[in-house]
Design a protein around this nucleic acid. Structure first.
Length: 260
DNA sequence: CTTTATGTTGCGGG
DNA sequence: ACCCGCAACATAAA
């Protein structure tokens, strides 16, 4: 599930539930979601810390404290919830009690990613490996990264070291809205096409962040991807499906003509 | 049984 | 150096 809009919603959860509060207890129910640290030290380092305003960069959520930073990555199936006296479910891997009966649940079925505990240098190293946040990048930087990129648009948009935050669904949605084929060379776009792409990026992210997810609406390409033989919501042409940059990719062959 | 899944990483090859 | 495809990670569903 998680792409940038989902992680932004988790940031909101962490802020509402935990910001300014002290961590009263930490229960690790599945050690394998912890990275680079064992249970004992993880618990010891966090208990008693006060949570600061959480930050998000791309798909990373950074839960700052008056000590180390708790970094979350949600992989494909992770989520963060704030509960009151709720019994943990099967996939609730880490529970963080923050007082007032509130408890944060890090839930993840597939455990492709997990939690890190980082010092300032660790946070710097993490951010240094990421491109600008897709929701914050300005037009000039966006142009620069496209022009510096060899290879196709789809991989440029989804490569986190180039631009942080977009996943497979959002990339397809943005390219469809901008009427650009996912295999078009990134550096080969004209000025007007880059403007269109940036506009689509802003529009899709705005709507998705407001919704707290990638909206599964019928007027969006995303609403059609599970529907074989589906038609383009704009022109009615049958959508094409293929494997581009290693991911299942959808596009409209009429709205998004293939590169020569 | 096989294929696919909105995540990333590491490896081999062009 | 850069980019691509592919396998791997863990788990469920079609």
């Amino acid at each position: 599930m998680p792409e940038l809009p989902d992680v932004e919603a988790f940031r909101e959860v962490l802020a509402t539930c935990g910001q300014g509060r002290r961590i009263e207890g930490v229960e690790v129910r599945d050690e394998s979601v912890l990275h680079g640290i064992g249970v004992r030290r993880f618990v010891r380092e966090l208990e008693g810390r006060r949570l600061r305003a959480p930050r998000r960069h791309g798909k990373w959520l950074l839960g700052g404290t008056d000590g180390p930073t708790l970094a979350f990555h949600f992989g494909m199936t992770g989520e963060l919830r704030c509960t009151r006296d709720a019994e943990p479910g099967t996939y609730d891997r880490v529970l963080i009690a923050v007082g007032g009966g509130r408890c944060l649940h890090y839930r993840d079925q597939r455990k492709l990613k997990g939690l890190w505990l980082l010092d300032e240098a660790g946070v710097r190293r993490l951010l240094a490996g990421l491109g600008p946040d897709a929701a914050a990048v300005d037009r000039a930087d966006f142009d620069r990264l496209l022009l510096a990129r060899r290879g196709g648009l789809k991989s440029a948009l989804t490569e986190q070291s180039v631009l942080a935050g977009l996943g497979n669904l959002l990339a397809d949605e943005i390219l469809w809205r901008a009427r650009l084929h996912p295999s078009r060379p990134a550096a080969g776009l004209g000025e007007a096409e880059r403007r269109r792409l940036y506009g689509a990026l802003r529009g899709v992210l705005r709507t998705s962040i407001d919704a707290g997810r990638v909206p599964p609406r019928g007027s969006w390409l995303t609403g059609r991807r599970d529907d074989p033989g589906a038609a383009c919501p704009r022109c009615g042409t049958a959508l094409r499906r293929g494997r581009i940059a290693g991911r299942g990719t959808y596009w409209c062959p009429r709205c998004q003509p293939a590169p020569a």
